[in-house]
């Protein structure tokens, strides 16, 4: 009887069990219908006219954007101008775009500026004070902490060197000038390579040295802080610092409306690290503050360029 009763209850519950099974098997989100047959040809959108702002691509575009977007938004607010950041892929492209007027405001290293100023009529109107409080910056020569053969700058002879870019100030030219001052010519290295582009070149140098692919690397001072999250810095040793050179510079392209340049220069000048909002903007951009500047502030750079140019004429430089 128990069997019949329990069996009867089981048979009564059977449809419910099967229903639950079916429900559990069929429960799923409902799809949204999209008509894929209705198609249109789309044109590439043309950006509206704007003051273009470019940061010399020593870092990746993302880093460039991250650093300067708050500053650009500040400038938009302060000047009322439609300022838009553009991202040249290489230094040459940056120079070319300045030359072509595609970059109105250039934030570049002093070496590039000297070339832009001397060759394309760009004019400096402000330069930055580095986070260390100096309106100067320098390069660093790094190696692995455990490199068995390199303990001094002279040990770099015959080693493989990776630099940021052929036109990089802190990442190559300052360092090359320093080596030349130390009696080491470009030909003394077994290999001089440049970080592959575009973007993120400073980081790539640190990574290449850290990976042991190259014996030494040359970077702009401050890069190690940027890659702190990506690289174990205890394995990196700074072998030497280059002399100080004028820091990064804001330059207006040739024929930029002076009023526009003045608005932007004034806005930049107004950035006060004591103002919390400004401090955030400046910190994001890796700038202590911005001070006015003129073309003559970069003569020391021109001297370096000349020294290197001679080397290039001697074909001792890559």
């Amino acid at each position: 009887m128990l069997l019949v009763n329990s069996g009867s209850r089981f048979f009564k519950a059977l449809p419910l069990i099967l229903l639950l099974l079916l429900v559990s098997a069929c429960s799923e989100e409902k799809p949204k219908y999209v008509n894929m047959q209705h198609r249109v040809e789309l044109a590439v959108p043309t950006p509206p006219p704007a003051i273009t702002y470019a940061y010399l691509p020593q870092y990746s575009h993302t880093v460039s954007f991250r650093r300067h977007d708050p500053l650009i938004r500040y400038l938009r607010r302060e000047t009322g101008l439609n300022i838009r950041q553009v991202f040249p892929n290489t230094f040459d492209e940056h120079l070319k775009m300045v030359e072509q007027g595609k970059i109105d405001i250039s934030f570049s290293n002093p070496l590039v500026y000297v070339r832009m100023a001397d060759n394309h009529g760009a004019e400096a109107f402000a330069r930055i004070v580095e986070p260390g409080g100096k309106a100067m910056f320098r390069g660093q020569i790094i190696t692995r902490s455990d490199h068995p053969e390199i303990s001094s700058i002279q040990d770099c002879r015959g080693k493989k060197w990776i630099a940021v870019d052929r036109d990089s100030a802190g990442g190559f030219l300052f360092d090359l000038g320093y080596f030349m001052d130390q009696g080491l010519q470009a030909t003394d290295f077994s290999e001089i390579s440049f970080a592959p582009g575009p973007g993120g070149k400073q980081e790539k140098v640190v990574l290449a040295v850290h990976a042991g692919k190259y014996d030494i690397g040359s970077i702009r001072e401050g890069t190690l802080d940027v890659v702190r999250d990506k690289v174990d810095l205890s394995q990196i040793r700074v072998l030497a610092h280059t002399p100080w050179y004028p820091s990064w510079v804001y330059a207006a392209r040739r024929n930029l409306d002076p009023k526009t340049r003045g608005l932007i220069a004034a806005a930049l000048k107004r950035l006060d690290p004591s103002v919390p909002e400004h401090r955030v903007i400046l910190a994001q951009a890796g700038i202590e503050r911005i001070i006015p500047s003129t073309n003559t502030d970069f003569d020391s750079i021109r001297d370096l360029v000349n020294k290197i140019s001679r080397g290039r004429h001697d074909k001792t430089l890559p």
Partner: peptide, 20 residues
């Protein structure tokens, strides 16, 4: 601005997909 910058469709972009 929801402007299509690049896509893999050939023969036009299915515009209904944009807001799907």
């Amino acid at each position: 601005q929801n402007n299509v910058l690049a896509h893999t469709f050939s023969g036009g972009f299915p515009i209904g997909l944009l807001k799907a």
